[in-house]
Amino acid sequence: MKNVSFVLNGKRVSCEVQDRELLLHTLRERFSIKSVKEGCGIGECGTCTVLIDNEPHYSCLTLASKVNGHDVKTVEYLGDADHLHPLQKAFIESGAVQCGYCTPGMLLSAYSLLMKNGNPGENEIKEAISGNLCRCTGYIQIVEAIRDAAGLCKCKS
């Protein structure tokens, strides 16, 4: 077991983790953050995406012990049902959510992009979400949503 301390969605946290524990399971089981989902488990689908130091990572291939001393963000950082982030609103308004399974990861990849680039072009948006698969929407609505949100939101680190 190892003790890890990190910043989770803006709050300092610490916990004991197993040596072989994956960040995905730490977040879901120890912190009850169920928005981080396991799809493929081998780094191909993006449903387990979290931001580590504001960059997207696959939590299904990240040992929990690696985040010691780092900053971790999940979609809960963006907003909640009563206070949606402009990016979340744009997803809803553009019809970029159908089953919703990919959405938390998709939002985080988009958020990370907007933190670095307030006015991304279509290709930059597509590139930024290229590690997140969506089996429902066909992506067009997602790209539109991110473009619409770009003008509206301030993405803070």
Partner: peptide, 9 residues
Amino acid sequence: IGSPQIRNM
């Protein structure tokens, strides 16, 4: 290589 996530890791 891979995807943005894979390149970050």
